[in-house]
């Protein structure tokens, strides 16, 4: 009995390994993915450096209240309000590009356990996403602080809260990529998935932000993915009423799991 179960789990893990290897080969041979990741890196690091350099150049001219409100870490990592959209779109494309060209039929024919295919993809998106994201936030931080040095306040990775912000940023980007991937599973269509990702991460938050911070706001707005993400990486005075960092991580994971559950049900039910 135990042996049977053992063999069964062994077979399952072998199948997962095979699925991951297959997906890895596909990802590696996909020419657009490294290009897109590189573009995201250039955009994020470039923006961080540009923002820090601008503060460095204008520091003396800025009014005193801008000086007081200035947080070197948050200013440096401001790109984390935009880059998640790229990561989420990329995650979505990993799925929808296969639907777009009909490759998904081949994929599901090779591995009929559709949940397994999705799991293998999620594993790769998570790992590649985390490595890329953390590399990007670290590089952006180090280069950005370097640009601030000399005129504006600046910090090192060892200063309190800095490492948490940088690693938190990497984690947020990774979860955004996974969120986007499962939105892709749900939508099965590039245009719908990318529009959805922009709506959730960029448009919705700015729209509801103007509402008074009361009952309705408190119940919803802090739990939008972008604001949960903000809780995770933000260092200085957090905008009032947002969730705590721990809640931020849990909330983002809950979003990913919820959309993954919806997506997996749909993948199982629908014809490829």
């Amino acid at each position: 009995m135990c042996a049977v179960i053992e063999r069964r789990t062994a077979a399952r893990s072998a199948r997962l390994r095979a699925a991951v290897v297959a997906e890895w080969i596909k990802v590696r041979s996909l020419r657009s993915l490294p290009t897109a990741l590189l573009a995201a890196a250039v955009f994020s690091i470039g923006l961080a450096v540009l923002v820090c350099a601008s503060f460095h150049a204008r520091w003396d001219a800025l009014p005193a209240e801008r000086h007081r409100a200035f947080d070197p870490i948050d200013t440096n990592l401001g790109f984390l309000q935009i880059t998640p959209v790229f990561f989420a779109s990329l995650g979505a494309l990993v799925i929808t590009s296969e639907y777009g060209c009909g490759l998904i039929r081949g994929t599901f024919a090779a591995t009929p356990q559709r949940g397994l295919v999705i799991a293998a993809k999620a594993l790769l998106v998570g790992v590649i996403g985390w490595i890329a994201a953390t590399a990007i936030t670290c590089a952006a931080f180090l280069l950005g602080q370097g640009r601030l040095a000399g005129a504006a306040p600046h910090v090192g990775l060892g200063s309190p809260g800095a490492a948490r912000a940088v690693l938190g940023g990497g984690l947020y980007l990774t979860l955004a990529a996974l969120l986007g991937m499962f939105v892709g599973v749900l939508a099965r269509n590039t245009a719908v998935a990318v529009s959805g990702v922009f709506a959730i991460l960029l448009v919705l938050p700015t729209m509801v932000d103007n509402l008074p911070h009361k009952f309705l706001w408190r119940l919803t707005v802090p739990y939008l993915p972008s604001n949960l993400g903000l809780s995770v990486w933000h260092h200085g005075h957090l905008p009032p009423d947002l969730a705590r960092p721990g809640v931020g991580v849990l909330g983002l994971v809950a979003w990913v799991v919820a959309i993954a559950a919806l997506g997996t049900v749909r993948v199982r039910k629908r014809d490829a």
Partner: peptide
């Protein structure tokens, strides 16, 4: 993909980037 990236980039990303810059 390219057209959506361009459209949403121009409409949404460029303004967010500019609001981050001081001056």
């Amino acid at each position: 993909t390219l057209a959506l990236t361009a459209l949403f980039g121009i409409l949404l990303i460029v303004p967010s980037v500019l609001t981050m810059l001081p001056g």
